[in-house]
Design a protein around this nucleic acid. Sequence first.
DNA 1: ATAGGCATGTAAGCAGTTACATGATTTA
DNA 2: TAAATCATGTAACTGCTTACATGCCTAT
Lengths: 193, 193
Amino acid sequence: MALRHAVLAALLDGEYSGYQLAKIFDVGVSNFWYAAPQQLYSELTKLESDGLISGRQVIQHDRPNKRVFTVTAAGIDELAAFAAATSKPLSIRDDLAVKVQAVDQLDPAPVIAQLEERAADASAKLALFEQTLRRLRGDLDEEAFLRQGHRIGPYLTCLGGCRLEREIRDWSLSTAALLRTRLTRSPEGVPAP
Amino acid sequence: MALRHAVLAALLDGEYSGYQLAKIFDVGVSNFWYAAPQQLYSELTKLESDGLISGRQVIQHDRPNKRVFTVTAAGIDELAAFAAATSKPLSIRDDLAVKVQAVDQLDPAPVIAQLEERAADASAKLALFEQTLRRLRGDLDEEAFLRQGHRIGPYLTCLGGCRLEREIRDWSLSTAALLRTRLTRSPEGVPAP
DNA sequence: ATAGGCATGTAAGCAGTTACATGATTTA
DNA sequence: TAAATCATGTAACTGCTTACATGCCTAT
């Protein structure tokens, strides 16, 4: 049970099809849960047969038809039970950090390049999240929205996503810059360990 | 191929046994890779039979004997190839964020409690990482160490871990505080969506 | 026509989690 | 003597990733 609740939470925002959810989960639902399309299609099937969501066919004329899903009362109950239970610790897995960890015994050039890419990706994601925040709060400013708005959950998680992306961007840039400096200071072969 | 390289990178710091690695990976190796003990024991077996690490028995009199491992030349090659290849995107999975996302339709009390726990955990982890930083840089200040030190990889990833934990702590605290405020303002039942 | 976005799946394989199992030694 | 720490595994299961497969509609 893992994706299950993330999908239920995402469907609280409204009706979505598997394809639409795939796009949402591709950016990671405000950064805290990634899922591949294939996972979603099979999870939706299971959730529906468990009665936690219900699907509805939408006929489209300009493009292929789709099935959109809504959370049922049983689905809300499931979410409530999940929220009350203890959480698994946050899990992070990062290839690039492994490379940085080992960078002293390795050619730093590809690591630097990847850090710079990562920074660019983080900037793009940050921009996306900030746009989402503006969309969610509408005319209100942030403080007013957080005080008065209904449905602030997605806003709060998106704020978390922004924080994270900012740190990733800054860490990646400063790490890349530092490794570059060391490169030029010891042009040929850093002293072997 | 996933844990593989994280283990190799961790073993660059020196010889470790499965049990010692388990403790390192339990905090998440500066936060970027978590692994359960059972994973490590089986991964170490595989890595050794692939010739990427080599084990050595250490006889201990005060406690059970252990086997410690070192990265072989082939292991370094493997890491180099890994570092040069493109990275998988950073992956995050966070139960608690799912709960926050859904918090509008749920009882917020347990979510608030968990956010506060999370903040406390993050503070503790931050303190631990800052201690690691001091240990790694020894007498030098950070700037000097980063300029002159050999083996700065673990320091850099640990800096990343600190950034992350700080954000987690602050986000958790401000989110918990906000949800509390809304609780007291609408004591009985937030208007149903 | 062909590339790209929309839309939904199946199947196989690999990685990660949970539960179980064992045993020595040290500290309270 | 009971709990905690050190030390290492096996087995079963679940969840995630990768590869493959299909087909519609729109824009170029």
